[in-house]
Design a protein around this nucleic acid. Structure first.
Lengths: 162, 162
DNA sequence: TATTGTTATACTCTATAACTATA
DNA sequence: TATAGTTATAGAGTATAACAATA
């Protein structure tokens, strides 16, 4: 079974307190995520990061899921198809992906990563000069460990249909 | 002293591995934060959340730091002054804040929260129907605890000048 | 002159609606 | 007809540059 628990209602005092605590945590998380995201995006613009977070996330997914249909990619990345069309068009323009029409069903366009794309991802993953990496480096080892363990939870919060 | 450590360079093999791990963590964190933020924003738009994350974050800071000058508020929220002018103008329009000109220095405009603003914040903090709150509720108690402990770290990553 | 905030303008990201090509 | 993707268009959020008011 899954490690998730889903309280249906809050009746006893303890459960009500828990519900309030959950709502508070969610609210706090939302604000923190938004602020941190803004900060990172701004800093990336200033220091001339190579890709925006959306483009980089799409590229990472293209690398991970091989030649992937744009519709599927849009679903994975939680954006609408037209947005993904744009993102992939730009990645292609810059030489990080290629688009191949599926021979079996010529309506389908698949995106595949290029060597340049792979190099870019590898580079960004080891960029120790980037803003966020510098900040992470300022944490203690145990704090980084805590962050690393919390990361899968953040990913799960955004996953589709539980 | 602070619990932070800042390795100046990576010379020994162990340090190099650590540096790579830090960069990887930062990269992963960036992508996760961006995706989660996108998801939350999108969902908020769909379900008609009362305020966007930026506005709500600004409002929360106005509540916390009392009548605050717009420039200071912009610095705290990590946005440029013109952006904050817009955000506060909208909050004022909707009746959640008031703007008062500082009598001592009439160039300064201070934003203060209204009763309606306080009520809105309280409401949003206990909104258990919101997308993120539902997802957080699906975590186990120990997972929520982990998240709660990681949150201050995320806040510190975005703080100014280490 | 220097500082605080505003106005004017533009850019990026993303969405919805309408369209094209293929099945 | 139904589906995959694209084009056209619009809106939110934020930035920079130029400006006004006050010190």
């Amino acid at each position: 079974m899954s490690p998730r628990t889903a309280p249906a209602a809050a009746s006893a005092p303890a459960e009500m307190a828990e519900t309030a605590e959950i709502a508070e945590l969610a609210s706090h998380l939302r604000l923190t995520i938004a602020r941190l995201n803004r900060r990172v995006r701004q800093q990336a613009a200033i220091t001339g990061e190579e890709l925006t977070a959306s483009s980089q996330a799409a590229l990472a997914t293209i690398e991970r899921l091989g030649p992937i249909a744009l519709g599927e990619l849009a679903a994975v990345e939680q954006v609408q198809p037209p947005s993904m069309t744009r993102i992939v068009a730009r990645l292609e323009e810059w030489g990080y992906v290629t688009r191949v029409v599926d021979p079996a069903d010529r309506r389908v366009a698949r995106a595949a990563i290029t060597d340049a794309g792979r190099e870019l991802l590898a580079r960004s993953r080891t960029r120790k000069e980037a803003f966020l990496a510098q900040r992470v480096a300022e944490l203690s080892a145990s704090e980084r460990d805590l962050l690393a363990r919390a990361l899968p939870l953040l990913e799960r919060l955004q996953d589709d249909a539980p």
